[in-house]
C-alpha cells in the first residue's frame, strides 16, 4: 500500500491505496468525487479528464502514486459559489450535452483548451483539440459552439478586467 497526498480542488487530501490504483479510481472511490467518469478501458474516450498541475490529463491512464504531490482540479472544483463556471454555463446555454456522460471530460478539456489558446480559438482548432474526447450523442456541433462561446465570453471578461 502507498500513501497518496494530493491537493484536490484547493483542499489537501491523503489516502492509502494500492500502487496499481488509477488516479480516477482514487478520485471517485477514496475522495467520493464521482463527477469524473470512466467511459472506456482503452484511454480513448476522455470522460476521465482532470487537470493535474494545470494541464489536462486522462486520470484513467495515470496511477494515483504518480500523481501524488500534485495539484488536481476535477469537474467539482470549477463552479464558484452557486454559480456555474463560464464553460459549464455555455454547455447549458448551447445544449452541449445530451446524456451528459462525457460532459465532465468535455468541460475540463474545454477549460484547458481556453487556458492555452485564450481568445484565439476557432472552430477548426476546437475540433482538433477535442481529438481525445468522445461523445456518442451530440455529433459535437453544440459542444464546439459551447466552447467557442465560452472562449469569447472569458476573453471579453479578461479584457474588461484589464
Amino acid at each position: 500500500m502507498a500513501k497518496v497526498t494530493l491537493t484536490v480542488n484547493g483542499r489537501t487530501v491523503s489516502g492509502e491505496c494500492e500502487e496499481r490504483t488509477l488516479l480516477v479510481h482514487f478520485i471517485r472511490e477514496k475522495l467520493g468525487l464521482t463527477g469524473t467518469h470512466v467511459g472506456c478501458d482503452t484511454s480513448q474516450c476522455g470522460a476521465c479528464v482532470v487537470h493535474m498541475d494545470g494541464h489536462s490529463v486522462k486520470s484513467c491512464s495515470i496511477l494515483a502514486v504518480q500523481a501524488s504531490g500534485s495539484t488536481v482540479t476535477t469537474i467539482e472544483g470549477l463552479a464558484g459559489q452557486g454559480e456555474l463556471h463560464p464553460v459549464q454555463a455555455a454547455f447549458k446555454e448551447h445544449h452541449g450535452l445530451q446524456c451528459g456522460f462525457c460532459t465532465p471530460g468535455m468541460v475540463m478539456t474545454a477549460v484547458d483548451m481556453i487556458n492555452r489558446h485564450g481568445g484565439n480559438l476557432d472552430e477548426a482548432t476546437v475540433r482538433a483539440e477535442l481529438e481525445g474526447n468522445i461523445c456518442r450523442c451530440t455529433g459535437y456541433h453544440n459542444i464546439v459552439k459551447a466552447v467557442l462561446a465560452a472562449d469569447a465570453e472569458m476573453s471579453a471578461g479578461r479584457q474588461a478586467a484589464e
Partner: peptide
C-alpha cells in the same frame, strides 16, 4: 501525437 491530454504526459 495522440491528443492534448496524451501530449501533456
Amino acid at each position: 501525437i495522440g491528443d492534448p491530454h496524451v501530449r501533456h504526459m
